[in-house]
Design a protein around this nucleic acid. Structure first.
Lengths: 220, 220
DNA sequence: TCAAAAGTGTTATTGGTACACCCATGC
DNA sequence: GCATGGGTGTACCAATAACACTTTTGA
């Protein structure tokens, strides 16, 4: 921008890695491509950024068009600008990732060309979308260590075991139950609802909720 | 990218926050703008991305054109895409930051419209460049805590006091000398050159160098 | 009464922080 | 000999990691 040159125009798109928890698995929303290139392949939801549209607004638009969801956690991830990443020509993609609580997902909307995939068992992906998802998962895992971001993947009410499962599945390793509970309680951002959740022939679990839903705090 | 829409073309630029240490101060390279908008204002070096040029290649080109430096640490920072950030029209900027060791800077090259500015005492800046520099400084400060990135700002040989000064100036707070030295020695990425640096009427300081120059390690 | 998950504390280790004096040199 | 920055170790505190049993329920 500092020095003027010939004006070079490029296509700018956003791709959004939409995460949610389904059946104790971290899942990503993928769209099956109808046409070439990569026809039949799965890809991230994405599209061109409008001329009068901010980047994050474009990302939220992609999110809403595939899921109907608004107002969830969204963060810019990275901008992918390799010269050959789209065989049709130069396309620069500003990637975002979003965290959708499972109770915010309209359960029905299962278009045949849109599906959730376990982030650890992805199909072959179009473009460089496998790289984008890998980076998003790493970023999410890193943020578990120093923020309360995982709570953005929880429904309004949840048990501590549910939450531990989320941590374990994102990190890919088991955690000690007592240390985990001690740590979460000491954050002071959860409160018991007073209700209990019965889930089989064993002791019911206490339900918790966030004190400030939507707020992501940094710790340490 | 997933769904096809009308092709919207935008201008894509990169702006590069070029850091170096000069006289024990963390400095940023700024360019004085010759023309409107913001004529006379200081701004980051930057320019349009070529159609066949990767984003990081464009950033390295900006860096080389202002400083002549190649092969230094460069990292993508964030993509700024607000709709009104450039009054001439829609311009999306992929910001990078670079770390230049002071002995890599050709000392003379002081064009009248290019100058180093203390990062804590910046002039009024064009566009949203103040935001970009602030974010770069924060990112650098955060990385001091969990990586060896600060060594990328050091000349080939340096004293531990020099290095401590770098940390202190980036973080904006004094550090304990013994704790600092203990920590850096325990990283095991420095080795003494055997030489000493005489700098006044006091004990000469031991000179160190990196065992693997250019390598940035993550710690903890 | 049994199986299955919920819930709960203590101890050991580690890493971080605070802190004060002697050393080598140039003037 | 004195002023100046270089160089070193220890004691305390806090955070983390390891670890096992009791409780409540449904079948």
């Amino acid at each position: 921008m500092g020095q003027e040159t010939d004006r070079v125009l490029a296509e700018v798109s956003t791709d959004v890695v939409i995460f949610t928890m389904r059946e104790d698995r971290l899942c990503v929303l993928l769209v099956r491509r109808a046409r070439d290139p990569f026809a039949g392949c799965w890809s991230l939801p994405g599209g061109m950024v409008g001329l009068d549209e901010a980047l994050d607004a474009a990302a939220r638009r992609m999110l809403a068009s595939k899921t109907g969801v608004t107002g969830v956690y969204l963060e810019q991830l990275f901008t992918f600008g390799g010269i050959a990443r789209d065989p049709r020509g130069r396309v620069i993609s500003v990637a975002y990732y979003a965290l959708v609580p499972p109770d915010r997902m309209p359960s029905v909307r299962v278009a045949p060309d849109v599906a959730w995939h376990d982030v650890w068992k992805l199909p072959t992906l179009a473009f460089d979308h496998a790289d984008i998802i890998a980076m998003a998962r790493q970023r999410l895992a890193a943020k578990l260590e120093y923020s309360t971001i995982a709570l953005q993947l929880m429904p309004e009410k949840f048990t501590l075991s549910d939450l531990q499962t989320v941590y374990e599945h994102i990190l890919g390793e088991p955690l000690d139950k007592r240390n985990f509970r001690k740590r979460l309680h000491s954050l002071g951002c959860l409160e018991p609802t007073g209700e209990h959740h019965r889930a089989g022939r064993h002791r019911p679990a206490r339900l918790f909720r966030m004190k400030s839903p939507g707020r992501v705090e940094f710790i340490k």
